[in-house]
C-alpha cells in the first residue's frame, strides 16, 4: 500500500496578539502516515487539535515545524513549505476537504456549488452537473432544492451539500472534518457507504468523527492526538 500522506515532526501553536500575545501551543511532533485506500481517524478530546491537524494538511493553517508530505503521482510535495500556488494546484487534483460547515456563495444554486470542483478542473459544465445530481440524489437532497442557493437550507441539508461537493471529485487524499455531525442515521449510513467506495478506489482518508458507529464503520486505524498534545 503506497503512502499517500506522511506527517513528521509537525508542530503548531497560535500567538494571540489581541490577548496580550498569549501563545497557545496545540500539538508538537505529530507523526503518522496514511496509505492509499486507508482511513485514519484522528482521536482525542475536544481542543486537542484534530481540526488543526486537518487544516495544516489542507494548507489553511500554517505548520510551524515539520513536514507534511503529500504524494502526487510519482512526486511528493511538502505542504508545510511549498508556495501558495502549489497548494492551490494540489487542492485541485490531489487533496479534497470536507469542512464542518458549508461556506455558501450567495446566489449560486446548490447544483453548481456541488459541481464547481469538477468545473474548475476543466470538466464540461453539463457533465459536472449530471454527476452532481447523482450524488445529491444519493444524499437525499430533494430535486426541488437543486436550483436554490443552499444558504437557507437546514443544517443537515447544508452538511449533505457540503459532503457532496467534497466527495464529487475523485482525489487521492480526502480530509473529512465531522462530515456526519448533523445527519440522521439514514444519511449517516449513506455517507459511510460513500466513504467505503472511496476507500475501495484507493483514496487515502483522514477523518475527524465523533459518532462511534460512523467511526467504527470507516476507520482502519485510530491515531490518538493526545500523545502529541503539548501541555497547555
Amino acid at each position: 500500500m503506497p503512502v499517500a500522506l506522511e506527517l513528521s515532526g509537525v508542530s503548531k501553536s497560535f500567538t494571540m496578539h489581541l490577548q496580550g500575545g498569549v501563545r497557545l501551543s496545540v500539538v508538537a511532533d505529530v507523526a503518522f502516515a496514511v496509505g492509499a485506500g486507508e482511513c485514519v481517524v484522528l482521536d482525542g478530546p475536544s481542543g486537542v487539535g484534530k481540526s488543526s491537524v486537518l487544516k495544516m494538511i489542507f494548507g489553511s493553517y500554517r505548520c510551524d515545524r515539520g513536514q507534511i508530505l503529500v504524494r502526487r503521482g510519482t512526486q511528493r510535495a511538502d505542504i508545510a513549505s511549498v508556495a501558495p500556488r502549489r497548494i492551490l494546484a494540489l487542492r485541485k487534483d490531489t487533496i479534497g476537504y470536507v469542512s464542518q460547515f458549508l461556506r455558501a456563495v450567495p446566489r449560486v444554486p446548490t447544483i453548481d456549488v456541488v459541481a464547481e470542483p469538477l468545473v474548475l478542473n476543466g470538466a464540461p459544465r453539463d457533465a459536472a452537473r449530471k454527476s452532481a445530481t447523482e450524488l445529491l440524489r444519493r444524499l437525499n437532497i430533494p430535486a426541488a432544492l437543486w436550483g436554490l442557493p443552499p444558504a437557507t437550507f437546514s443544517g443537515g441539508e447544508q452538511q449533505r451539500v457540503n459532503v457532496a461537493r467534497g466527495l464529487l471529485p475523485d482525489l487521492p487524499l480526502l480530509l473529512l472534518d465531522e462530515p456526519t455531525a448533523s445527519l440522521d442515521a439514514a444519511n449517516c449510513a449513506v455517507v459511510t457507504d460513500l466513504i467505503a467506495e472511496k476507500k475501495r478506489r484507493g483514496t487515502a482518508i483522514v477523518a475527524v468523527v465523533h459518532d462511534p458507529k460512523v467511526r467504527n464503520d470507516i476507520a482502519d486505524r485510530i491515531v490518538d492526538l493526545t500523545r502529541f498534545a503539548t501541555a497547555a
Partner: peptide
Amino acid sequence: TGLTDRVLDDPCQPYTQLLVA
C-alpha cells in the same frame, strides 16, 4: 501575505488578527 484562507483562518500579524476579529 499568503494563501487567502490561510491568512484569514490563521492570521499571524497583530494587525491581521485585528482585521479578522
